Simulated assay, not measured.
Amino acid sequence: MASRLKESGALTSDWLPTFAAVPRELFVPDLMWPGRAKGTGAGQGEAIDRNEDPEAWFSAVYSDVSLTTQWDDGQHSGTGKGRTPTCSNSQPSMVFSMLDALDVQETSRVLEIGTGTGWNAALLSERVGPGNVVSVEVDEENAKSARERIESAGYHPTLIVGDGFEGHREGAPYDRVLVTAALTEVPHRVIGQVRTGGIIVAPYATTYGGEGVVQLTVQRDGSAVGHFVGSSAFMRLRQQRQKRRHVRDYLGGKPWPADGEKSMTTISPEEVGDWLPMFAIGLQTQGMFPWAEYYDDGTYTLWLRDAAVTSWATVDYEPGRDEFEVYQSGPRDLWDEVAVAYLHWDNMGRPEFGRFGLTVDGETGEHTPWLDHPSSPLRPVC
């Protein structure tokens, strides 16, 4: 796996000794659900139990896939899949890409938000010394098992059970912050615990969808500014999860299309459904999210809903069609907003993740996405 990670550029030469010194197998429980490799479908595969099939277990551990280790905040048991994965040992290429973006120095003081299985905390302890590592985990059971694994591997960083959204002020100031769960808001309290010139690396998710790893540098004025360095797909930070209402709550008790107004669009739902355009749309829209309702004949309905439960839209996809039926209802024309954001991205030349950036105001916490440079902010379409 080291060879594959080096070949892909994820594992750099300065992290290679750390990779060798901290085997991934020490931080994976006996029962886990491996993620599927690219091109074979999304989600998790069937459970693998080390005690029953050690060969398959080791094969999964040394594959470049994420390994789900907990479902439903620990409320799920057994070998079947739960509803929502809530802890994992992250994909190694993502782990080392983010560690590379963190740009740690020999004596960097590092705060990790989300201990998870403990592998990142141990890797950082090996690289900068355990006395320079603070890791915060909100889930008590995950924190307990991670501590056991980390200490069994010979490391003793500061491990805290608490709310990572608050950081850990007692250990501040930090030179680096690594976040291992997706944020919809970079906590300004955490920014305030980082030295000027310090770096924060975090997966940043839009409400609409799509997600990328952002590398922020803390400025003298307390703001944090930086580019995205690639795509990502992490579990949401527990404190920032969103509860979404069922589509029936938007229809006012009436059958679809209720009071929706009909129109047609030449933009296919397929065009706006990939991770990159979703991310670009999400940076330009606020408080809306999509959901696809699939049918057996290969068609589907793209639903759009707003977080305020005031507006909805549907777009029906049928293969081979050039126009698609749209219904919209409420004070916001959600499909129109998506179309404007998509066309803006398209007209800009379909920029990749690395051209986007983010500025977080240290006082107000306001988040401003931009393209190429902070002086070119992306304006919300509504």
Score class of each variant (00 low, 15 high):
residue 1 M to H: 10
residue 3 S to G: 13
residue 3 S to K: 15
residue 4 R to A: 10
residue 5 L to W: 09
residue 8 S to A: 09
residue 11 L to Y: 11
residue 16 L to C: 04
residue 16 L to A: 13
residue 21 A to N: 04
residue 22 V to P: 03
residue 24 R to F: 03
residue 27 F to T: 02
residue 31 L to Q: 05
residue 34 P to I: 07
residue 43 G to C: 01
residue 45 G to S: 07
residue 48 I to F: 06
residue 55 E to N: 07
residue 57 W to K: 15
residue 59 S to T: 03
residue 62 Y to S: 06
residue 62 Y to N: 05
residue 65 V to P: 03
residue 73 D to R: 08
residue 75 Q to G: 05
residue 76 H to W: 12
residue 77 S to V: 05
residue 78 G to R: 14
residue 81 K to C: 09
residue 82 G to Y: 01
residue 85 P to I: 07
residue 87 C to Y: 04
residue 89 N to M: 02
residue 92 P to E: 11
residue 106 E to M: 08
residue 107 T to M: 05
residue 108 S to P: 03
residue 110 V to N: 00
residue 112 E to Q: 12
residue 112 E to M: 11
residue 118 G to E: 01
residue 120 N to L: 09
residue 121 A to M: 12
residue 127 R to G: 00
residue 135 S to P: 04
residue 136 V to D: 08
residue 136 V to A: 12
residue 139 D to Y: 15
residue 139 D to I: 13
residue 145 S to F: 06
residue 147 R to C: 03
residue 148 E to S: 15
residue 149 R to L: 11
residue 151 E to R: 07
residue 152 S to D: 08
residue 154 G to I: 05
residue 155 Y to A: 06
residue 157 P to A: 11
residue 164 G to D: 10
residue 170 E to I: 06
residue 171 G to V: 04
residue 177 V to F: 00
residue 178 L to V: 12
residue 180 T to W: 00
residue 184 T to L: 13
residue 185 E to G: 10
residue 189 R to Q: 15
residue 190 V to F: 03
residue 194 V to Q: 01
residue 195 R to V: 06
residue 197 G to P: 11
residue 202 A to I: 09
residue 202 A to M: 03
residue 204 Y to K: 11
residue 205 A to S: 10
residue 206 T to P: 07
residue 207 T to H: 09
residue 209 G to M: 12
residue 213 V to Y: 00
residue 216 L to W: 07
residue 225 V to G: 14
residue 226 G to R: 10
residue 227 H to C: 08
residue 229 V to N: 04
residue 230 G to N: 01
residue 231 S to V: 14
residue 232 S to Q: 05
residue 233 A to P: 00
residue 236 R to N: 13
residue 239 Q to T: 04
residue 244 R to T: 10
residue 245 R to F: 12
residue 246 H to I: 00
residue 246 H to V: 01
residue 247 V to M: 06
residue 250 Y to D: 01
residue 251 L to Y: 00
residue 253 G to C: 11
residue 256 W to S: 10
residue 259 D to K: 14
residue 263 S to D: 06
residue 265 T to F: 08
residue 268 S to F: 06
residue 269 P to L: 06
residue 282 G to W: 01
residue 282 G to F: 02
residue 283 L to H: 02
residue 290 P to T: 06
residue 293 E to W: 04
residue 301 T to H: 11
residue 308 A to F: 04
residue 311 S to E: 01
residue 312 W to G: 07
residue 315 V to D: 00
residue 319 P to T: 08
residue 322 D to T: 11
residue 322 D to Q: 08
residue 325 E to Q: 13
residue 326 V to A: 02
residue 326 V to T: 02
residue 341 A to E: 01
residue 345 W to R: 06
residue 346 D to F: 11
residue 352 E to M: 14
residue 355 R to W: 03
residue 356 F to C: 05
residue 358 L to I: 10
residue 372 D to R: 14
residue 373 H to Q: 06
residue 373 H to F: 13
residue 374 P to E: 04
residue 379 R to V: 15
residue 379 R to C: 03
residue 382 C to T: 12
